[in-house]
Structure formats: C-alpha cells, structure tokens
Design a protein around this nucleic acid. Sequence first.
DNA 1: GCTAAATGGTACGGCAGCGAAACGATCATG
DNA 2: CATGATCGTTTCGCTGCCGTACCATTTAGC
Lengths: 116, 116
Amino acid sequence: MSIEFRAEQALRLWHAVSMALVHDDKPDLTLRQMTILLTVYLEPPPHTVRGLAARLDVTKPVITRALDTMGRLQLLKRRRDETDRRNVIVQRTVEGSLFLEAFADLVCLKARELPR
Amino acid sequence: MSIEFRAEQALRLWHAVSMALVHDDKPDLTLRQMTILLTVYLEPPPHTVRGLAARLDVTKPVITRALDTMGRLQLLKRRRDETDRRNVIVQRTVEGSLFLEAFADLVCLKARELPR
DNA sequence: GCTAAATGGTACGGCAGCGAAACGATCATG
DNA sequence: CATGATCGTTTCGCTGCCGTACCATTTAGC
C-alpha cells in the first residue's frame, strides 16, 4: 500500500474533499483551526497554548481564539495544568474524535474514487 | 498504484500539508477560494460566475468576491464572453498553474513521507 | 517576601468574507 | 422596439479572524 500519487491525482483528491466540505452546511474550520485540531489529535501531548503557537509559528492570540471557537464547537477543550497553573492543557473531546473520524473517512472515500 | 489509505494516514497527510501551508507566509486561500480555483483548473470550461455558484452551491457574490481576491493574486482572470456579453468567463493564468503545480508537489511529497 | 520571568487571556482598530437585496447591462421574446 | 428575464456586480450591516499591545495570574530566583 504505497502512498505515491501523481500531481493530478493529488489535485483531484483535494478538490473532491474540499468540494464535499463546501457542500456540507456545517461551518468550516479555518486552515489554522484545522491544523491546530489535527496537531492536538495526532501529536503526543501535552499541548499548551504557547507550544501550539510555536509549533504552528503563529501568535498566541491565534491559538486562544481558535480554542474559543473550537471549544464552542466542542471539538477541543481546555484544562488548567494543576502542576503549573500558568499552563493550559488542550485536550481532545469525543465530538472532536468523531469529527476527525468522519473527515478521515471522507478523504479515504474520495481517494478510492480517484481515476487511475 | 492504488490510492487506498487508512484513516490515520489520511489525517496525517492533511496535517502535514496544512502545516506546510500555515508555515508558508503567503496568504492562504479560503476553503471556498481553493475549491473555486481547483474547479476552474480541473473541470472542463467554460466557467461562469453562475455556473461556479451552482457547482459549489454558494451565492453569486461569493464567486465575485473570490474572483476579486484571486484576480488580485493573479491566480485567475476574468474575460467577458463576447457571444453573450452578460457572461463572464473565468480563466486560468500562468501564476495559477504554477501555484497549483507547487501545491500538488507538496501533497505528493507529504504523501511519500507518510509512515506505513 | 520581593522582584522578574513566563503563561494565557483581553482590548483595540482593521480587514475580509458572509447573505440578502438592489442595481445596471445585456439578451430573448413578443 | 418594449417588456421581462438573465447575468454579474455592488451595497449594506454583520460576523469573525488578524496582529499589536497590554493585563492578570502564577511561578522561579534571590
């Protein structure tokens, strides 16, 4: 199962997935928001605001605002770090897991439908 | 060269590509803008404002605004349809082609770097 | 304890995208 | 040639994200 594809297939995959997301009436996440979400779910914890800002090379308020928005959407949640109460630990949620699971299924589906 | 991947690989690919786009200091396109761009480059012409709006299931002003923005970025251009001057034909540009080519290369690169 | 550093959040003005509605130009129809 | 339909754009008020600067809380160092 090698993941090599041609440039055109890459574009067609991105197109199909993007089109599906646009057609979906759920509010779409910003590129930065999506990147934060994926980082939290794919990279080893703990995830702090400052750490995420450094990882993405963006300012802190970007992370704070994204956590506000995605917190409202229940995709992520904050927790105070009790060993160092200055830190905020960003954690996954059930809703976030389900969201990314559905997204991954969408990508796999569109990849499977790709012309050779 | 079958394009089947697992859910986790899909997420990791999207993460790697998104991260690269975020790190890039070029202004990122909206999901809708990117979808319009890919549609123009991948689907058979001609592309009109109304046609694109129907294809993406968005309102016309969304297309107009996206064309303004991407026109400024030289990724697309407008041309009046001379046979029916009410229509505007959306056309590719050299810069747009280069942009998508680089993007496709990025996706292919990140796909190749994916863990098995 | 007291100061300095570190962390996350907030305030502010600016900019861009959004939907709904109205508009001008162009074409089709009689 | 006059009326109505079609097409793209513009306007309006709104919302949300942006970066810069500043603030409150907590910890570290002396």
